[in-house]
Design a protein around this nucleic acid. Structure first.
Length: 852
RNA sequence: GCCCUCGUGGUGAAAUUGGUAGACACAAAGGACUUAAAAUCCUUGCCCAUUAGGGAGUGCCAGUUCGAGUCUGGCCGAGGGCACCA
């Protein structure tokens, strides 16, 4: 027998699949569809282990569904706009387009080496004008529907990338990609009106039964719906300000009112612009708002005005008005009423400026003298010290009643507020989708006529200019529309826009007229199973949901609200980290170990290596393993097997060289077994011995795997396959009926084929079985076992296991166990006062011992 | 601070509805084959016992139950998300 030569065999089958267009998909209304999609990659240069894991999980599912008779759409493309291309262009003096295309070509080859069942005829690339021309048209359509608008706004400015970031892209006050503290800057920006769909985005989550709760919770928190009311506070003072509007979720604490705080960007600030002290205060706020320390400390600072706010429920109560750094202009009305006793933030502020703290809610168990000093009380209880509100139950009754009172007196009204803000999509960079808008000399915006689309990116451009290279592209910028001289918008769209509809494009990737074809959209969408990293829980997944709703808005033909019916978020691939004594990262290639505990530097084996914990693979920590190397060394099937072994797919998996080798060896063992089986089949054995055993095993295996597939327990499926090997390898030495062996082995091969497709195809061909094999159907009669193990417990403790006929009665079982040595001794000195009998499973005898 | 998830051998982990805890694999130790190594195969796995067997045991403490990894309450620990959101 020859060793299994994965190099030859994998190449052979990959060529076969490509030549035969095995995975090409067409719309076929007679067949049930299944749309399986993995998040498409950014073409950074090479594929990484994260891709390998993601695409293996998806590929297994796509292949299984296809074998089960579904018409499977399983496409792949490239999220190919983005800043790294511009940076690489500067470094290597290579145009972003050339750099991107070269990366795509490399990565495509790598993906093909994995043996994925992808329909490459549907390949798309977001940086291609064939793709983005439709995006520009969508932009104009949304503009017409009023879902896109332009406004001057404070934005998150990333000084390293010289561009604007969306709120979602700011993490701990830093740019999500650059890691540099974000600054505040006022700019004219294009926005998508995502907040219009706040409620819909929130409610839609309830319908997504096949989404992980974790992701739904994250989106729910991000949308941040809160129920409360708006209140107009009357203002007294020497300025022409009559009222300030506030939003509050706790109107029931109005009698604890002690100050009113507004944002420095609040409209009333215009009355203070002549006050140098205020200007200075405002500068301080914009600085502290984004620096690291201020976020960590959360220090509250205020600027006292000479205005006073009047409590609407008690006109005698007048409190000072402050500007405060903690009040955000873009939430609520940019103003809050301060009740320090029942809000920690307000309490911190009140303590700093020595403001009154009046307790108006007490916990149920406390008496009326309860008072707050250092810690605000935010829990449930009863309203006190609040005149006509006294005695109301906090929170539900008190809040609803107070709102009723305020509405009745026309002092306020019920209000629901969302945390979700509109999505700023303007980016000051070259390598992105141009925004189809131009301006006249007064800055008025004009949409570019649809017939003039696409607006292509100019290719000759000075990438070394500061800021956005498009600003200097005068030939491109100047245009004439209907005789009017206009200047193009030079900002490009956030690349998250590109990925917000690519799953729709895959349905009709070659439709030149429009972004999709309604017939195809209707057949393929929604995506049945979407698979990707949990890091996109909010950004990409929320934007995609919004974009789908926006396309659906005022369009009866579209008829799709949620793009992803099922979502699965896989864990990351981790690896130990290594450092030398200069605290510099070392790659796994640079270190070696003999005992698996102590690591040394390869070039200098006397130097010890500091081993850090396993972290997700990243270039900066140098703890990456190059999939290409691994595939070359062990083959795609081995890597696929390893990616699914050991850890459940939703959890992080730790890379292990030994684990990888074990998978490689297992395939070799499977090949040896295959050859033994092949030899056995040639014997044409007619034996009827143990004929049921192998059919039972196979059918129970199929049943188990079906269940595990449904629950994404891929690691358990791999364990089932190991069990199968152990079983067959043992049974093969005894006589087996050849016909039965063939039938069952065929089923077993079909089950493993989605996981290790090259290997399985080779074995099938070797036995002259058609490679287009179907997923086996469980023959239910084999799921039943005639003999069964029943657990015998004495006082709840396992004492014996009895093998007997299925369906045995309690009486007969008791008769049998009386002769069982292990059990008998427990029955000797006691009375059986009770027994619990679970048919075919368990018998628990409760024995009372006397004299004990 | 708030919200969510998770704690099972030396390691990664299994265990549909409460019913044989540790499947499957990695590592380790011992053994077989071999002149030797590699490869392969077998055994072991916490405590007591020569064996037979027994005991403890799923982060900790209680509870419900004939029976708890699984259910309930409290505590401890780890990871993730959000964070002046009024």
């Amino acid at each position: 027998m020859e060793r299994y030569n994965f190099k030859v065999i994998e190449e052979k089958w990959q060529k076969f699949w490509e030549d035969n267009k095995t995975f090409k998909t067409k719309l076929d209304k007679n067949k049930k569809k299944f749309y399986c999609l993995e998040m498409f990659p950014y073409p950074s240069g090479k594929i990484h282990m994260g891709h390998v894991r993601n695409y293996t999980i998806g590929d297994v599912l796509a292949r299984v569904k296809s074998m089960q008779g579904y018409n499977v759409l399983h496409p792949m493309g490239w999220d190919s706009f983005g800043l790294p291309a511009e940076n690489a262009a500067k470094e290597n003096n290579l145009h972003p387009k050339a750099w991107t295309e070269s990366n795509i070509s490399t990565m495509k080859k790598q993906l093909k080496k994995m043996g994925l069942s992808l329909d490459w005829d549907r390949e798309i690339s977001t940086c291609s004008e064939k793709y983005y021309k439709h995006q520009q048209l969508f932009f104009l359509e949304l503009y017409e529907k009023g879902l896109v608008y332009r406004k001057e706004n404070y934005v998150n400015w990333d000084p390293a990338e010289q561009t604007v970031l969306a709120n979602e892209q700011v993490i701990d006050g830093k740019g999500w990609r650059s890691g540099v503290p974000v600054e505040r800057k006022k700019l004219n920006q294009w926005f998508f009106n995502i907040s219009k769909f706040s409620d819909e985005l929130l409610k839609g989550l309830d319908e997504l039964k096949n989404w992980p709760n974790k992701v739904k919770t994250m989106q729910k928190n991000w949308i941040g719906k809160s129920f409360g009311c708006e209140i107009d506070f009357k203002i007294e003072g020497n300025l022409p300000i009559n009222t300030i509007k506030c939003f509050t979720t706790r109107p029931d604490t109005l009698f604890g009112f002690s100050f009113l705080a507004v944002s420095v960007d609040h409209p009333i600030s215009e009355h203070f612009l002549n006050d140098p002290k205020f200007i200075k205060f405002r500068e301080e706020c914009s600085k502290t708002g984004t620096t690291e320390e201020s976020i960590a400390l959360g220090e509250k600072i205020g600027f006292k005005t000479n205005l006073f706010a009047i409590n609407p429920l008690d006109e005698k109560q007048k409190v000072p008005v402050y500007f405060a750094n903690f009040v955000l202009m873009d939430y609520g009305f940019g103003a809050v009423f301060g009740c320090p006793a029942h809000d920690q933030r307000d309490l911190d502020f009140a303590n700093k400026y020595k403001l009154k703290v009046k307790t108006v809610v007490k916990p149920i168990n406390e008496d009326d003298n309860f008072s707050v000093n250092k810690e605000a009380y935010t829990g449930p209880g009863v309203v006190i010290n609040s005149n006509f509100l006294n005695g109301l139950k906090v929170p539900n009754e008190s809040i609803i009643k107070t709102i009723d009172i305020l509405e009745e007196k026309k002092l306020g009204k019920k209000q629901i507020n969302f945390r979700l803000k509109d999505w700023g999509v303007s980016r000051q960079r070259y390598w992105g989708c141009p925004i189809p808008i131009a301006y006249d000399e007064n800055g008025n915006a004009f949409p570019i006529p649809k017939k003039d689309l696409p607006i292509k990116l100019p290719e000759n451009i000075d990438l070394n200019s500061k800021g956005n290279p498009l600003d200097g592209a005068w030939d491109w910028k100047k245009i004439k529309i209907d005789g009017k001289e206009l200047t193009r918008e030079t900002d490009t769209l956030d690349t998250f826009v590109d990925s917000s509809w690519y799953f729709i494009r895959f349905c009709s990737p070659n439709n030149e007229k429009y972004g999709f074809d309604y017939d195809e959209l209707k057949y393929w969408m929604p995506v049945d199973q979407y698979i990707g990293g949990v890091e996109h829980a909010i950004l990409h997944l929320l934007y995609s949901r919004f974009f789908t709703m926006a396309l659906n808005y005022e369009n009866k033909n579209f008829n799709l609200k949620e793009p992803f019916k099922g979502l699965f978020t896989q864990g990351m691939v981790c690896h130990e980290t290594y450092k030398n004594d200069d605290n510099k990262w070392l790659s796994p290639d640079e270190v070696e170990t003999k005992d698996g505990k102590n690591y040394f530097i390869k070039k200098n084996p006397t130097k010890k290596v500091i081993v850090g914990p396993a972290e997700s693979m990243s270039k900066s920590k140098k703890n990456t393993i190059d999939p290409q190397q691994i595939i070359e060394n062990y083959g795609a099937d081995s890597v696929r097997l390893f990616m699914l072994s050991d850890s459940p797919p939703e959890k992080d998996v730790q890379w292990s060289d030994q684990g990888m080798v074990a998978c490689y060896k297992f395939i070799q063992k499977l090949w040896a077994l295959h050859n033994k089986i092949k030899a056995k089949l040639k014997e044409k054995e007619k034996s009827k011995q143990n004929t049921d055993e192998i059919s039972k095993f196979t059918n129970q295996l199929i049943d188990k795997i079906n269940n595990n597939l449904e629950r994404f327990n891929y690691n358990v499926i791999i364990a089932n396959i190991y069990e199968t090997y152990n079983f067959l390898n043992q049974k093969i030495s005894a006589p087996i009926n050849s016909d039965l062996l063939f039938e069952n082995y065929k089923k077993i091969l079909s089950i493993i084929s989605p996981i290790i497709p090259h290997f399985a195809s080779e074995c099938l061909e070797d036995l002259k079985i058609d490679h287009k094999i179907k997923w086996p159907i469980v023959e239910k009669q084999f799921l039943v076992n005639e003999n069964i193990n029943i657990v015998i417990q004495i006082n709840g403790k396992k004492r014996s296991i009895i093998n007997c006929k299925k369906g045995i009665t309690e009486e007969n079982l008791i008769k049998i166990i009386k002769d069982d040595v292990k059990i008998n001794k427990f029955l000797q000195n006691g009375n059986n006062i009770k027994s619990i009998f679970i048919k075919d499973k368990l018998l628990n005898l409760i024995i009372k011992y006397e004299n004990k």
